[in-house]
Each structure stands twice: as structure tokens, then as C-alpha cells.
Design a protein around this nucleic acid. Structure first.
Lengths: 230, 230
DNA sequence: TTCAAAATGATAGTAATACTATTATATTTG
DNA sequence: CAAATATAATAGTATTACTATCATTTTGAA
């Protein structure tokens, strides 16, 4: 994918990190290789010690960037959603037809990811796998409410809100735009997961994509009929 | 909730446990109090040692029932889905109208749980909270595929299949019954979570329930129009 | 160029986790 | 009543998720 803007920096809430990993070479190696290592061994087995070994650096140095592996996950997921949000805003901007806008938006949030060469040290394809496999773990914790107050999930929530606003423009009478938006985004991750691991309970696979499923679903859900009575 | 059948035993794949916790007093105390403790401190902080202290038993004794806390989680989640499946089968059985059947099925899988007095040592309301907060962790692991082969997720998959069959009966032309079924079940858990922690990105709350949202959605998705062209 | 501050690395240490192994003591049952 | 079975107690292990301290290297401003 080629973007028109160069030198974009994806911005992540700065309370998530101690020191901005974008600000140094070591920081970039941390993000780059944490993505690869988490993908390789899974977040549960991932440790800063193993990452240190992998990048030829020291565990203690990594702790200078992130206070815990949980915060690192929050960083990676926020980066990912900010990147998706950027694509959503960019792709729907100046599109006059609301339905086309919604179509595009759903594609952006549900599609299989392709590499983005604008961010050389981040492999978006691998990061997407991490989001599919590990994202829920970032909020399914006893600390959600306090971390939510700290603003750790703003990017994700803002993305859902943008999508729900687009939904609302297509059919202002539809009663559940936020729930539909959150269902599409979370549901797409889930369908991608099922495709890879529980293929018997999804129709997504070789021929059908999560994008198709959710485009079809959204279209039907938002269809306005002359006959509003049942 | 009062059931017509007494002495039902919810059956969980027996590879999940070493010794059936239903077979002894200690076993029942393990399931009963693990539910309460996981709810209290979260699965991540939950340990067999803490559980042992809570039930006045020994860590090593608990290991005789479950080889790890992960297996215990698999047990609790399988029990839960088997219990939901039982309700689904029971409630839709002998219902002649397919649409009514689907309506009932969606209610069963999306509603807020009420206590079931048939299983005295299991608090279903609390167990439901665990499912909402921890279920994904049972399959978002590096071992999913091998555990899936071992049959650890059969109950869940069977439930989704039952729901997708009911969907299929209502509208045999609908192309994605499995994806819709998995989206409803997983999505309902997600909406319940959002309601409790990220209320700004859901419409579910005091007035609207996940059940309403998914009933409305499913109805629209499966509606057959005379005009099949777009 | 210099020199001090900032960044990184090395080492050590800690409490807790997720177990396994062994032995002892109850409890059940044939 | 003996033998089998279940449970409890204790100890031990490698690993985790850190914190703390000190040494060394890199940097950038005067």
C-alpha cells in the first residue's frame, strides 16, 4: 500500500509508555521485534528477557520504555488502531455518497491486512495477527476501568465512534449504531480467528471474507423499507 | 429458573479433567469456589494455592482434579456452554414455528443470566461474568489447534452449529448462517462487556439489551424480500 | 574538544507462579 | 480389618516479572 503522505507519525497516548519508542533506535527495535516475537511464541510466553536476547539488548533497558509487557501490548494495539483509524479517515474523506463511505469504512476495518511501507520497522501483517490473537487480553483484565480512565483505550473507542457516525449518516433511524459498529470491528477479528482455527463455525474461508459477511450484514441491517410496520 | 427435569448432569468432555470434580465433595468445592475466586480476583491472578486456602484444602489436592488452571477454565467454560446448550435445546424443542424457535434461541444465548437452582454448587450468574471476562482467554493461546483436536471446544462449537441450523431453517437462502451464529454468541458477550466497561461504544445499557440488539439485527439480516435484485 | 547528562548494559536480588515429587495421614470399601 | 484410595503436608524447581544499583557508552551543548 502506498500512501500519499510521507512522514506521518501514528500517535499513541503517551501515558502508555515511559519513553517514546519512536524516539530512539533501541525503541524502534523493541517495537519491531516485540511484534515478531509475540507472533512467534504468543503473548503469554513473551518476556522482556527473551526480547532482550533477541535484539541483543538488556531486559533492564526495555523496562526503561515500558513498565510491563501489558503496557507494551497496549502500545502495539493503540498503534494498530490508530493506523486503521488513519486509513479510515483517509479513505472516507471527501467521499460524497454516505453508502460508499460506509462500504469503504467496513472494508478498512475488516479486511485482511497488507503491508504498509510507510512504517518500515512495523510489520502490519504480523501486527494484525497479534491483534486477532491477543487484543482482547489488553482489556479483559481487572484493571480495565482504571486504565480506561487513564485513556489507554481512546484510540479504539474513537475508531468505533467514527464508524458508528458513518452508520448513522446512512440510516439515521437505525437504533443501534454504536453496537453495530463495535460488533463489526470485534466480530471481524473473531471471524478471522475462526477462519484460522475453528473453520466449522464460520462461513469465512477461501471463498468468503469477513469483509463480505459484514458488508452484506450491514447493508441488510440498515436497509430502509417503505413498509416500517411488521 | 425452574426446570422440569431434576437430576440432569451437565456433561463436559472428560479429557479436560484428571478426576471428575462432580464425583466428590472436594471436587464440587473446587468448582464452586473457583468460580467465586476467579470472579473476585480475575483469572490472571487466580492460583490453585489461593483456591486451596479459600476452601481449606491443599494445592496438591486440586492438581489431582485439574492439571492446570487453564484446564480448569476449559472445564468451567465447557460446563457453561453445555448448560446454555441444554436450555437452547429444551426451549426450542417442539416449537413448530421456525421464527419463534430462532427468537427463543437468540434469547437463550444473549440474555442476562439468572440463577438456576438445579445446580446448587454452581452460581450461574457469577459463572456468566467469568465467561464474559475470561472466555476468550481459553482459546486465544498458541495451543488452540492441538487442544481443539483433543475436543476441548466441542460443546461451544456444537452450540454454534445448533444456532446456525435454526438460522438456516428460517432463511435457507442466507449465505452466512455459521458466521451469523458465531457473531451473535461472541458478540453478545462483547456487548455485555462493553455495557459494563466501555459504555460509550455500545447502545446496550439500561434501556437496551444485547438480546434486543441481536434480535433486531438477525430479523433484518434474514428478512426475505420479494425483490432479490440490488 | 570537552565534559556532563542521558542512555544503555550488566549484575544481583526478590517474591510469586506454576508446577512436580515425595511422604504422611485420613477415609472408604470390599 | 486390611488394603486401596483420597487428601494433606512439605519441599523443591525453573521461570516470571519485576526493582535496584552500579558501570559503561553515547550524545550533544558550551
Amino acid at each position: 500500500m502506498i500512501n500519499l503522505l510521507s512522514n506521518i507519525k501514528i500517535s499513541v497516548p503517551d501515558k502508555i509508555f515511559i519513553k517514546d519508542p519512536e524516539s530512539s533506535d533501541l525503541g524502534k527495535r523493541i517495537t519491531e521485534h516485540s511484534i515478531l516475537l509475540i507472533d512467534e511464541i504468543g503473548f503469554d510466553s513473551f518476556t522482556f528477557k527473551k526480547l532482550g536476547t533477541k535484539i541483543g539488548s538488556n531486559e533492564s533497558s526495555i523496562y526503561r520504555y515500558f513498565e510491563s509487557k501489558h503496557k507494551l501490548l497496549l502500545y502495539l494495539t493503540s498503534w494498530y488502531w490508530a493506523w486503521i483509524e488513519y486509513q479510515l479517515v483517509f479513505a472516507t474523506h471527501n467521499v460524497p455518497d454516505n453508502k460508499v463511505q460506509l462500504h469503504t469504512a467496513i472494508e478498512v476495518v475488516t479486511r485482511t491486512i497488507k503491508e504498509d511501507l510507510n512504517f518500515t520497522h512495523i510489520n502490519e501483517v504480523v501486527l494484525n495477527r497479534i491483534i486477532i490473537n491477543e487484543y482482547s487480553k489488553s482489556y479483559l483484565t481487572k484493571e480495565v476501568d482504571s486504565e480506561n480512565k487513564e485513556g489507554y483505550f481512546v484510540v479504539y473507542k474513537r475508531l468505533i465512534k467514527r464508524l458508528s457516525e458513518i452508520i448513522n449518516k446512512v440510516n439515521p433511524d437505525y437504533e443501534f449504531p454504536s453496537s453495530l459498529a463495535s460488533t463489526i470491528v470485534e466480530g471481524a477479528l473473531h471471524q478471522h480467528f475462526l477462519k484460522a482455527h475453528f473453520s466449522s463455525i464460520t462461513d469465512c474461508g477461501k471463498d468468503v471474507t469477513p469483509t463480505e459477511f459484514f458488508l452484506n450484514l450491514t447493508q441488510k441491517v440498515l436497509k430502509t423499507t417503505k413498509d416500517e410496520s411488521r
